[in-house]
Design a protein around this nucleic acid. Structure first.
Length: 588
DNA sequence: TAAGTCACG
DNA sequence: ACGTACGTGACTTAT
């Protein structure tokens, strides 16, 4: 206690029984305040042998009364690896961790997005230190034991090392980051606290609805499978791409087969769609695959992830994996819940607000194209956004040299594909494939586009030039995306790096903007509508659950914070919708 | 654990 | 001749 009180920076780590926050029990704390030393405080270790007593530990109440004042003291600076996790573990214990100043995972991410950010990887790379592997103390696979069953002596060495390594990493990164520490301090770390609240709150899910859908999908899959086997004339595993390829291209002898890298027959969607003219099986397979996907990945899996205590699904947002600065979501992935197909969209009906509440969804309108207008400074593009035009129709009008009112549906569709292509650093090949036109036609579209938007071309050229010089490109708020292969002698790799260099500043700046908006929104919600809860983020969309009565207030708050997150040369617009379910809270 | 497939922005 | 639009995560099969 004396050492902790006197320290000017405390590395903190917790040991628990589960990675899933609401199921995890605290097992022990570890601390480090200077290099080469670490402590472990066992809290709730048990004995492997049910009959023998638990190992000797200080009473939990005594530990808490000593540690809580320090952990909750905002003036005592702390560093952690992935603070978002420990924060929630401690919240479970009614300890409200304060004074979080550094998160080594986020520091590593700011330093170089895309590098592995696990503590052991960072220790190897930056400290040349090999950490004790979790498996070494807990075992692995089916025989793995929970941390509370690990022998205290052994646990102490493992846990104390974690805190000590965190401290050393923190010092190393502080030095390495220089000015870049700002992104950690002002964006990533504050955001991680918002994400912790979102994960903690979870999304309420109607399991009954999911069960009904599962059953419905299951029946249809069974019927389809029987039909397929009958049409094939022999039994085979419909879910095996390998067996399916052999059946289609060898047994049935269908034409137009392609092989994958590994020499297996390709049976992807595009292949099967082409094959549909030749035989009835491909379409049946596509339908089965679609339904199986919905059932196994969504309706079945989501039910299993509903927490028994909270009746909600608590995703985990990963803040350290993407190169562009986006978040990702796991267990479950709430960022890829179906919407494009009608039957898939049904799944969103299971994401509901609790009684007396409503879901409000706000999504940025065309944020990446707006960023393109901003970065390129293109006058026509900027004017189109300033006038609040339908941007795809406006592009169609400009490229075809016609009036906005004369644009046909087909022209708009093509212009939309070109607009997306622009964001992805398109090639004629990619656009042709997307539009189903010849490569030369695609090339003409692209040329027509750049003839009307020469500054977009200039912006792209300058971006590539910068990438070649610095080896990285940058987003609006300074997130760096390294493009190592930009000067590669391998044409393919170089082309890929070039597309990344074009896309990353746009995708990444959009990610910057929504991060700033989330931090601002959370602050205002806390102050003005404390019961309202931000519960999901899907790259350009935020979802809040609030009381019916607060609907108007929260909607306004969301629009205001999202639209004013940064100032661009074009208006930043968020569209708002609400409903009892996520399905309803979407403008259709 | 890798490959194939497919869900999202 | 090859392989080709950016970024993710989950599930299934096969090894």
């Amino acid at each position: 206690m004396k050492a902790l009180s006197a320290a000017d920076l405390i590395a903190v780590d917790t040991e628990t029984t589960s990675l899933s926050i609401h199921d995890a029990a605290l097992v022990g704390f570890s601390f480090a305040v200077k290099e080469g030393e670490g402590w472990y405080v066992p809290v709730s270790h048990r004995s492997m042998d049910l009959l023998s007593a638990a190992p000797k530990q200080i009473a939990k109440a005594m530990i808490f009364s000593a540690l809580q004042p320090i952990l909750e003291d905002a003036s005592k600076p702390k560093c952690l690896q992935n603070a978002k996790y420990d924060l929630q573990i401690l919240r479970n214990e009614n300890i409200h961790l304060a004074g979080i100043c550094y998160d080594t995972m986020l520091m590593a991410y700011v330093l170089e997005a895309g590098q592995a950010v696990s503590m052991d990887k960072l220790a190897e790379k930056y400290l040349h230190h090999k950490c004790i592997a979790y498996e070494e103390v807990a075992g692995k696979g089916a025989k793995q034991i929970t941390f509370d069953l690990i022998d205290v002596e052994q646990a102490a060495v493992y846990a104390a090392e974690d805190a000590e390594v965190t401290l050393r990493l923190c010092l190393a990164f502080k030095h390495a980051l220089g000015d870049q520490i700002k992104r950690h301090d002002e964006i990533e770390l504050p955001l991680s606290l918002v994400l912790a609240d979102m994960e903690w709150a979870g999304a309420y899910v109607d399991s009954t609805q999911l069960a009904t859908l599962s059953q419905r999908f299951g029946e249809r899959i069974e019927a389809l499978e029987m039909k397929i086997i009958e049409a094939a004339g022999e039994d085979f595993n419909i879910r095996s791409p390998k067996q399916l390829g052999v059946l289609l291209f060898e047994t049935l002898g269908l034409e137009g087969g392609k092989k994958t890298k590994s020499g297996q027959w390709a049976t992807g969607q595009d292949v099967l769609e082409k094959l549909a003219e030749e035989h009835e099986i491909p379409n049946l397979i596509l339908e089965t695959r679609g339904l199986s996907k919905l059932k196994s990945t969504y309706t079945d899996a989501l039910q299993k992830l509903v927490n028994i205590k909270t009746k909600r699904v608590h995703t985990s947002y990963n803040q350290g994996v993407t190169t562009t600065g986006r978040l990702s979501s796991t267990n479950p992935n709430l960022q890829n819940i179906p919407i494009r197909s009608e039957e898939g969209r049904e799944i969103r009906k299971a994401f509901v607000a609790e009684d007396g509440n409503v879901l409000i969804a706000a999504d940025y309108s065309q944020i990446e194209l707006r960023l393109m207008a901003h970065f390129s400074g293109d006058a026509i593009l900027k004017q189109a956004f300033a006038d609040g035009l339908d941007i795809h129709a406006a592009t169609a009008a400009a490229v075809n040299g016609i009036d906005l009112r004369e644009v046909t549906g087909e022209q708009r569709r093509q212009a939309k594909a070109v607009n997306f292509g622009i964001l992805y650093g398109m090639s004629a090949f990619g656009l042709a494939k997307q539009l189903g036109v010849s490569r030369s036609d695609a090339k003409m579209f692209i040329e027509a586009y750049f003839a009307r938007y020469p500054t977009v071309q200039t912006f792209m050229d300058e971006t590539l030039e910068k990438a070649r010089e610095q080896g990285y490109v940058e987003t609006l708020l300074g997130h760096r995306v390294y493009v190592h292969d930009i000067n590669s002698s391998n044409g393919m790799m170089k082309a890929y790096a070039e597309r990344t260099a074009i896309n990353a500043p746009l995708q990444g700046s959009a990610a910057d903007i929504i991060k700033v908006a989330m931090i601002a929104l959370q602050e205002r919600l806390k102050a003005e509508v404390p019961q309202a809860r931000l519960i999901m983020q899907v790259h350009d969309e935020l979802i809040v659950e609030c009381a019916d009565a607060d609907r108007e207030h929260v909607s306004t708050l969301m629009a205001e914070t999202m639209q004013s997150a940064v100032e661009l040369d074009v208006p930043l617009i968020a569209d708002i919708a609400f409903g009892t379910s996520w399905f309803e809270a979407h403008e259709l």
